[in-house]
Amino acid sequence: MNEMKILIRGFGTVGQEVARVLDKKRNVFKDKFGLKFDLVGVEDSKGSALSEDGLNIERLLSTKKKTGSIKEKGDKLGINEINYDLLIECTPTNIKDGEPGLSNILNALKDGNDVITSNKGPLALKWNKLAKTAEKNNAKLKFEATVGGAIPIINLAENSLASNKISSIIGILNGTCNYILTRMAAESLPYEHVLNEAQDLGIAESDPTYDVEGIDTALKMVIIANSILGAEASYQDVDIKGIKEITTESLELAEEKNKTIKLLGKADKEKIEVEPRMVPKDHPLSVGGTLNIATLETDLAGEITVTGKGAGASETASSVISDLIEIWKERN
């Protein structure tokens, strides 16, 4: 592959940030990795912008900011006719049927095109189908951005810990919940008060259901369990309990025992669960604020723990771009 032709489907916060990084670091990628690319197509909810010769990314971002869409000429049907090598799939997560991301990814893989996605829904619902389709068509499917923002959990397991058997993973994989519980414990504030604060700060969504009910963490744990542990699980297999019932009294009780409460996701080959648990204050999992953390139990290296920012456009784009560079290296 002399040059990579890239298509982005889903041009919200993450999709735009990926395009921005591609444009900003184009020369760095070329000089450091020999990576040359053209962004030949972008699709958002209102239409698409396409060019076989490559789109002007700066103009694309400017158009999106001014008009709310990137549509220039043609319509959404044209995006299925553009020639490309790599799909970056950044449409919103849908836990009901995984669409439109599921179809976008499957169609790309069936055509032998590589895929990078930040969309948790398709992987948490149809892991086996996606993995088998990729294998059958000699296409690569990468998804580091789905599980921990900028934290390299999947790549750590597949590359640095390749000689290890990993038996379980436990971690905090939702920054919104971690922020809420950290603030509740530090200031003895009730849940609703801190949730409203988090929403005002932009840490929590206007509808925080996915986060506070443990759904987001559950989706991530399914993806981790399937890809690292070979669990062949689906989102429906996860035992889930969120943080809405956590009170200041329960946090004070934990404090008396020199512990705190965190929303933990845990997976092994037998079970995947998400629930609030007491954690000793001096334990590595006792991170504060919006930080995420994951501990992998291995047979050779023991416990390996990674931590960092688990959300945010820049952090998610970081993982998408790292997957892109990995694919480029593997293809060349």
Rank of each mutant, 00 (worst) to 15 (best):
residue 245 E to D: 08
residue 191 Y to Q: 08
residue 124 A to F: 04
residue 156 L to H: 00
residue 213 E to P: 05
residue 212 V to W: 13
residue 240 I to W: 09
residue 172 I to L: 02
residue 229 L to H: 02
residue 124 A to D: 03
residue 120 K to N: 00
residue 131 A to Y: 04
residue 170 I to D: 03
residue 177 C to P: 09
residue 194 V to C: 08
residue 177 C to V: 10
residue 177 C to S: 14
residue 147 V to S: 05
residue 218 A to P: 04
residue 177 C to T: 11
residue 229 L to V: 00
residue 187 E to C: 15
residue 243 I to S: 04
residue 129 K to M: 08
residue 156 L to G: 00
residue 203 I to C: 09
residue 155 N to G: 14
residue 241 K to A: 09
residue 209 T to E: 05
residue 182 T to G: 12
residue 136 K to R: 09
residue 206 S to I: 10
residue 119 N to F: 02
residue 133 T to E: 05
residue 233 A to Y: 12
residue 138 N to W: 08
residue 159 N to W: 11
residue 203 I to T: 07
residue 246 I to H: 07
residue 210 Y to M: 10
residue 188 S to E: 10
residue 143 F to T: 13
residue 186 A to R: 04
residue 175 G to D: 15
residue 196 N to M: 07
residue 179 Y to G: 14
residue 205 E to G: 13
residue 188 S to C: 15
residue 119 N to D: 03
residue 201 L to K: 08
residue 184 M to E: 15
residue 245 E to P: 06
residue 143 F to K: 02
residue 161 L to Q: 03
residue 122 P to T: 07
residue 237 D to I: 06
residue 244 K to A: 07
residue 166 I to S: 03
residue 185 A to C: 11
residue 149 G to F: 01
residue 198 A to W: 01
residue 232 E to P: 07
residue 198 A to C: 06
residue 212 V to A: 12
residue 143 F to M: 09
residue 175 G to C: 07
residue 154 I to G: 11
residue 224 I to C: 01
residue 129 K to V: 10
residue 207 D to N: 14
residue 230 G to K: 08
residue 222 V to Y: 09
residue 204 A to D: 05
residue 135 E to L: 05
residue 171 G to T: 13
residue 234 S to H: 03
residue 219 L to I: 08
residue 194 V to E: 00
residue 214 G to C: 09
residue 124 A to V: 01
residue 176 T to A: 15
residue 215 I to C: 02
residue 129 K to Q: 08
residue 188 S to K: 12
residue 191 Y to A: 05
residue 230 G to H: 06
residue 190 P to W: 03
residue 143 F to D: 04
residue 139 A to P: 00
residue 152 P to H: 05
residue 243 I to V: 07
residue 169 I to N: 09
residue 123 L to P: 05
residue 138 N to I: 12
residue 146 T to W: 02
residue 130 L to C: 01
residue 144 E to W: 07
residue 142 K to Q: 14
residue 238 V to R: 13
residue 158 E to Y: 01
residue 220 K to A: 06
residue 131 A to E: 15
residue 170 I to V: 13
residue 190 P to R: 13
residue 170 I to W: 01
residue 191 Y to R: 04
residue 133 T to W: 12
residue 241 K to D: 03
residue 118 S to H: 01
residue 181 L to M: 06
residue 170 I to A: 15
residue 121 G to V: 01
residue 186 A to M: 05
residue 187 E to R: 09
residue 210 Y to D: 06
residue 187 E to K: 09
residue 235 Y to K: 11
residue 166 I to C: 15
residue 218 A to H: 01
residue 241 K to T: 06
residue 146 T to H: 11
residue 224 I to E: 02
residue 169 I to H: 02
residue 217 T to C: 02
residue 160 S to G: 09
residue 144 E to D: 05
residue 244 K to D: 07
residue 237 D to K: 15
residue 130 L to K: 06
residue 169 I to R: 06
residue 193 H to K: 14
residue 198 A to M: 01
residue 124 A to R: 06
residue 216 D to R: 07
residue 191 Y to L: 08
residue 126 K to Q: 10
residue 150 A to S: 03
residue 229 L to K: 01
residue 214 G to M: 14
residue 162 A to C: 00
residue 171 G to E: 15
residue 165 K to A: 04
residue 141 L to Q: 10
residue 219 L to N: 14
residue 184 M to S: 12
